[in-house]
Amino acid sequence: MTDHAHDLGCVREATERLLAAVAALDDAAVTESSRLPGWSRGHVLAHLARNADALVNVLQGRPMYASGAAREADIERDASRPPEVQLADVRDSTARFLEAGAAPADWSRTVELRGGVTDSAARVPFRRWAEVELHHVDLGIGHELEDLSAEFTEREIDFLARRFAGRPDVPPTRLTDGTRAWHTGRETGDPEVTVAGSRADLLGWLAGRRDGSALDVDGGPLPSLPPL
Rank of each mutant, 00 (worst) to 15 (best):
I141V: 14
T110Q: 12
T2F: 07
P63Y: 02
T188G: 02
H4C: 05
D7S: 14
P82Q: 06
G220H: 01
H47Q: 06
G185M: 04
A122Y: 00
E16T: 14
A103L: 13
A66H: 10
G219A: 06
R35I: 02
R77G: 05
F126P: 11
L203P: 10
R210W: 01
L175H: 02
E112V: 15
A70L: 08
G220Y: 06
L87E: 03
E112Q: 14
A5F: 09
A214M: 07
T2G: 08
A150C: 04
A54R: 06
E144T: 15
V117F: 11
A14T: 05
D211M: 05
D211V: 07
L225R: 07
D169R: 01
H143Q: 14
V85Y: 00
G178K: 04
D53S: 13
I157K: 06
T153C: 07
V90M: 03
S80C: 12
P191C: 10
R96T: 11
S224G: 10
E99Q: 13
W107F: 09
L87P: 08
I75E: 13
T188P: 03
A29S: 15
I141R: 08
E192D: 02
A150H: 13
R62S: 13
L18K: 10
T15R: 08
E192H: 10
S80Y: 08
A121I: 10
A130Y: 04
E84G: 12
D158S: 15
L139I: 02
S40H: 07
R17E: 14
T194I: 04
L25Y: 10
G197L: 00
L36P: 08
S108V: 12
H43M: 09
P227R: 04
P221S: 13
S149Y: 04
N57D: 10
R162C: 12
A28M: 02
E192V: 15
L18G: 12
L48S: 06
R199W: 01
L228W: 04
A24S: 14
E112P: 06
E84Y: 07
S80E: 13
R186E: 03
R128Q: 06
L206H: 09
A196D: 11
V117R: 15
D218Y: 09
A79P: 05
L148V: 05
A46K: 08
G140A: 03
W129H: 11
R41H: 03
Q60A: 13
A102R: 14
G178M: 05
P82E: 12
E76D: 13
S93N: 09
D158N: 14
S120F: 03
P227E: 00
V132P: 04
D27M: 07
H183I: 01
T184E: 00
A200T: 05
A28W: 00
P83N: 07
T184G: 03
T176G: 08
V111D: 03
T110R: 12
G101F: 04
R167N: 14
P191E: 01
E32Y: 00
L36C: 14
G42N: 04
P168K: 02
